[in-house]
Amino acid sequence: MHLKRFTDFALRVLIYLALHPGRTISINEIARAFDMSRNHLLKVINELVASEMIITYRGKTGGIRLARDPAAINVGALVRRLEGQAPLINCAEPLCPILPACTLKQVLNEAQHAFFEQLERYTLADLIGTKQEKLVNLLTNHVAGGNA
């Protein structure tokens, strides 16, 4: 299973916001921290706002914050929403001649279900765990190291 870049960026945004509780974070700050395109990041932000994961604040001191406690943001539910429920393979396009006797599609559907089930065991708070200080330091050093 391979996550879309969009989903990857959404998870990074949420992790960044969770690492800075109570702060309103600018989109430019996140773009610099992860070397992301600001334009692509704006699309991700819009989806996170639509899914009620983050809140935006307009104006000179505007930015974004988490809309919920990190412990209330389920990783699996978010990934499922962003990735969709499309099957891993399409046996009808082109039509596979062994379709009537093949179990590959069933096996892959079971694997996909298990993938999402595993992710649903974790929250955003779990992704940070006891590593908050280390994660903040890594991001700070990354930006200070010439990626600002």
Rank of each mutant, 00 (worst) to 15 (best):
1 M>I: 05
2 H>C: 13
2 H>A: 15
6 F>A: 07
6 F>W: 13
7 T>Y: 04
7 T>K: 02
10 A>Y: 04
11 L>G: 04
12 R>F: 12
12 R>Y: 13
12 R>V: 14
15 I>W: 02
15 I>T: 08
16 Y>D: 10
16 Y>F: 12
16 Y>M: 01
16 Y>S: 09
16 Y>W: 04
19 L>S: 03
20 H>E: 00
20 H>R: 03
21 P>F: 05
21 P>C: 00
21 P>S: 05
22 G>E: 01
22 G>N: 13
22 G>W: 03
23 R>Y: 13
24 T>V: 10
24 T>C: 09
24 T>D: 05
25 I>C: 05
26 S>Q: 07
27 I>M: 06
28 N>R: 11
29 E>Q: 10
30 I>Q: 01
30 I>L: 15
31 A>C: 06
31 A>N: 00
32 R>K: 06
33 A>F: 10
33 A>V: 04
33 A>P: 07
34 F>V: 10
34 F>T: 06
35 D>N: 15
35 D>R: 15
35 D>S: 14
36 M>C: 09
37 S>Q: 09
38 R>Y: 10
39 N>L: 06
39 N>S: 14
40 H>R: 15
44 V>F: 04
44 V>C: 02
45 I>T: 02
47 E>L: 08
47 E>Y: 09
48 L>S: 04
48 L>V: 07
48 L>P: 00
53 M>R: 08
53 M>N: 07
53 M>P: 07
54 I>T: 06
54 I>N: 13
55 I>Y: 11
56 T>S: 14
57 Y>M: 03
57 Y>N: 09
58 R>P: 05
60 K>C: 06
61 T>Q: 08
62 G>K: 14
62 G>V: 11
64 I>Q: 00
64 I>V: 11
65 R>M: 15
66 L>F: 07
66 L>Y: 01
69 D>S: 07
70 P>K: 05
71 A>Q: 15
71 A>M: 09
71 A>E: 06
72 A>R: 11
72 A>D: 13
72 A>S: 14
74 N>F: 12
75 V>P: 00
76 G>N: 03
79 V>R: 07
81 R>D: 15
83 E>L: 00
84 G>S: 04
87 P>K: 02
87 P>S: 12
88 L>R: 10
89 I>L: 01
89 I>H: 09
91 C>Y: 05
92 A>G: 13
94 P>S: 14
97 P>M: 08
100 P>S: 03
102 C>R: 06
103 T>Q: 15
104 L>I: 05
105 K>V: 09
107 V>F: 06
107 V>T: 15
108 L>Y: 00
110 E>W: 12
110 E>H: 15
113 H>P: 08
113 H>I: 12
114 A>P: 07
114 A>N: 08
115 F>K: 09
117 E>S: 12
118 Q>R: 12
118 Q>L: 14
119 L>A: 01
120 E>N: 14
120 E>W: 00
124 L>K: 01
124 L>G: 03
124 L>P: 00
125 A>F: 04
125 A>D: 04
126 D>S: 00
126 D>I: 03
126 D>N: 07
129 G>D: 07
130 T>Q: 09
132 Q>L: 10
132 Q>A: 07
133 E>M: 13
133 E>Q: 09
136 V>G: 02
138 L>H: 10
138 L>F: 09
138 L>G: 10
139 L>I: 08
141 N>Q: 09
141 N>E: 15
142 H>M: 05
143 V>D: 01
143 V>Q: 02
143 V>C: 10
144 A>L: 11
146 G>L: 10
147 N>M: 08
147 N>C: 15
148 A>F: 12
